[in-house]
Amino acid sequence: MRILVALDKNPYSDYVVRLVAELAGNTWAHVTLLGVETHVSPGELLDSQSAKTAGENAVAAVLDTYREAFLGFFGETDSPYGRHTSGYKLIQEKKGVVNLVYPEQHERKNLTVKCRAGNASREILAEAEQIEADLIVIGCDPGTDCKWEGHADICGKIVKNANCSVFVVKEEKKPRMIDCCLDHDTVSQASIELINQLVTLYHADLEIIGVADAKGLKSEVDRRMASILDYYVSRNIKAWVKVVDGLSLNSIIAQAAEKNLVAMWMGKESFLDKIFSKQRLGKLVTSAESSVLILR
């Protein structure tokens, strides 16, 4: 599993790091911590991140503190990410992309720290493509516009355009249940597996919510829900199904999000894609009070 963690200087990034550390503690995933410097040109990135010129406000320096926090989650002997070494060199991977390279750690799994220059959403998506991420995790303040520096609605843009699943983290909580909304029958194996890992992480129950349109729940969706339910029940996960009207989905999501984690399967054939036209989906994700997981 490869997880891309998009980080900025806002406080929500602190608990994004903690959440990813917990998930990585279970999954031993390859993890990339990514920051984006939006105010410098790609050609100036390397110089701009130098501790001598930029000090502790440089994105690289901030990422270094996040790396410390991430590694702090693991014991010295148990960490799949190797010994807890400090002190990094800035190595340019290519124009506009700089890696923070640490002393040899003898790690089993990669913890990569890097900084990109440019438009935040574009660079995050480019990195996700490059590393073939299975999951992007990004923080956002609840119920407000995204506070990523210099850009509005970064999270919405990531959710709309990413090829992999995206976890928009808004608060630190342990959901007791994961509500998975489904309106089509094309559900990727990767998305089912990602839910498995989160159910394991949170010790959560699972509610599979079928979303009906004006004509009711499509028979193929009904069948798919049944097969997904069988899959989870046979693996001793407490799961059940329910069907809701698509028109009331917004209020259902708002209610569920108070205590649970809301996940939505958003495929190409998704009716949810129509309910939340690309623009509205971004808005829903950005303005939601609670974390949202978009499954692909």
């Binding site: 599993m1 490869r2 279970n26 999954t27 031993w28 995933a29 089993r108 299975d134 990767a190 890992q197």
Partner: peptide, 18 residues
């Protein structure tokens, strides 16, 4: 994960993976 390595596995890979 830890138990797998104690038992001598070559690697431990969580799903999903490419």
């Amino acid at each position: 994960a830890k138990e797998s390595f104690r038992k001598g596995v070559f690697d431990f890979l969580a799903k999903p993976f490419k």
